[in-house]
Write a protein that binds this DNA or RNA. Sequence first.
DNA 1: GTACCCCTACTCGGATAGCGAGTGTCCGAGTCGGAATGG
DNA 2: CCATTCCGACTCGGACACTCGCTATCCGAGTAGGGGTAC
Lengths: 161, 161
Amino acid sequence: MRMSDGVEWAAHACALLAALPEGVGVSAALLAEFNDLPPAYMAKHMQALARAGVVTSARGAGGGYRLARPASEVTLWDIVEAVEGPEPAFRCTEIRQKGPCAAKPAECRHPCQIAAAFHAAEKAWRGSLKAVSLASILADLARKQSPARRAELLAWLETKL
Amino acid sequence: MRMSDGVEWAAHACALLAALPEGVGVSAALLAEFNDLPPAYMAKHMQALARAGVVTSARGAGGGYRLARPASEVTLWDIVEAVEGPEPAFRCTEIRQKGPCAAKPAECRHPCQIAAAFHAAEKAWRGSLKAVSLASILADLARKQSPARRAELLAWLETKL
DNA sequence: GTACCCCTACTCGGATAGCGAGTGTCCGAGTCGGAATGG
DNA sequence: CCATTCCGACTCGGACACTCGCTATCCGAGTAGGGGTAC
């Protein structure tokens, strides 16, 4: 099982958007340049975030992406769901209904014990991701990152806006 | 993100092995037939379980696979780890060290907030899977499955052993 | 009758093709800002 | 000097190739068990 790299990219991009002053848009190309990523592919993932309503997009000069909601209301799960889709990683194929000892559909109104356990595990995973918002990430970062470095990053962004 | 179907197959196969009397081996072909799965592919996953030490294999007539440990000591995580490998789904590529504002390696002794959050979420996921053993699955099943059906399954297996 | 040997059938194990999701890229659609122009 | 129009540059958005890992399969390696043979 492997998570798409795009999730990491999207998460970092959203963290950057959350750190910006309100009302400022950033192009996908700039977001890509900031982390040395392929611009076109980065744009593709930003489109996914826009479709999911995590960010809003504006075309034309001075346009770009910005967060659609306050940073405290955007969780990591929102980003994962936007980029990878809402489907669970574990998908029960109901093999208990196959083979010479197949269970009848009437007996399968409830998921089998194995599927239930995997669904519970994924629920725990999602819950953990839903508990982390962009705001909490930035708060954590502010505590551990030197103010000098933070200023350095914002200064670089200023030159590009 | 998508989990390999082999995990579901392996989990059901292990549950079947756990339900058998001790000392009985079952061939990969029979495990596959029981759930109408491709025999050769099923065998491949059983090999993975054997390599990981979840099951033991015996060649020759009357051989096959059996659990390497009591069912209470085999968790769903053991099976996932055996089939999919121990690597986490989220793999931080350290993009903070790339680009024009790259962080220096000395600043990156700790994982970034995003990677930390994903690792915590996966830890919760693994923890949930480690809490479910084959024994607990069988206990749950015994509570919900009719005794008649259980007898039916064992009867079919008898004819094939 | 018994012990030994060989042979067959059965099982695992790794090496080998095929396919689909994710990866990466490009060009067209749409929009804003400013420069040029005429009143 | 000001309003209007037009043009250009910038940005998003979806459509098009490519790659790698999961899917699926086959054939060789190794072993247990039984039958045959010699003593």
